[in-house]
Amino acid sequence: MMRAFAALAAWGLLVSASPPIPVDDALITGDTLPARLGEFHLLAGPYGQKPNAGVTPYRLNTPLFSDYAEKFRYFYVPPGKKIGWRDDGVLDFPVGSVLVKSFGYPIDMRAPTKGLRILETRLLIHRTSGWIALPYVWNADGSEATLRRAGMRINVSWIHLDGKPRAISYAIPNVNQCKGCHDDGAGGISLIGPKAHNLNRDGQLEAALRAGRIDHLPADIPRLPVWDDPASASVALRARAYLEVNCAHCHNPKGPANTSGLWLNWEQGPGPNLGIYKRPTAAGRGSGNDEFAIDPGHPERSIMLYRMQSLDPGIAMPELGRASVHQEGVALLSQWIAAMPVQPANQP
């Protein structure tokens, strides 16, 4: 993914000949829902792979799994404004900010720079009335993306990392589904990814400070482990990072899945609410005939892993954006649960 990104950035530098039209701040903070992505002038070039001036690419330590899609993230902060630093939760992006995420698939994941097809670009726009989520779908030649608030499905195929062909029905979420994850717990939309600990890599926070896009940085910035980099942290901490990013936007004490009592956010202490010896609440057949969300020592009978390995919409977790099993994520969580100490007193 990194190589693909570097190649795109280099390509972007080559074609920046004519002075670009600046980002349309009035459109961002206005009250319309622009039908075409191009109207914002956030991205240029085929499939919008060239960010405009002020539109900054960023990466996360542990990203959300999205059916193996390649993802390109950018943030935009309007001139004269700064991101407010926050130790906990997401950084405070001022009104007029936009978070941009493009999703696509290469022909062959073993050569991710070749034949990349971008399917969609999602915007989260901070207006005075709050954040709004707008999904744009690219046309076949990558010349324009149009607003598709009701979402849609696209058949996608690629050669997977194992050299075998894969095909899925890729779901572009509708705006309600956007909010289904980006839920602020008070009727509005919130950010998920750009928390300080997840952004803290590759010097990108320091670069934002130098560019005057963030108000300050503390001396000691927390860092979320990189889920698939054993050098970054222990299995347990990487598993917790994986849960934080892939599950906790719903499974937290205030999120859309709070009523399950299963809370997988980074701050959650050990115990039943983290899933350990926790019985299902409203799982239905999602329980897979097992007793506990996490059954220590027994990944094979933990409901969490059963649901991560299912593609049935009545069972699968996460509920949205997963038409394939994330084998590598399943392996990490299995390793974590297998190593947990068994507490006989809690056995059924």
Binding site: R153, S169, A171, N176, Q177, K179, G180, P313, G314, E319, L320, A323
Partner: peptide
């Protein structure tokens, strides 16, 4: 023929 989502209709 449902391919996704945890319920038929969700009201929030």
């Amino acid at each position: 023929g449902q391919k996704g989502a945890g319920e038929g209709l969700l009201v929030t």
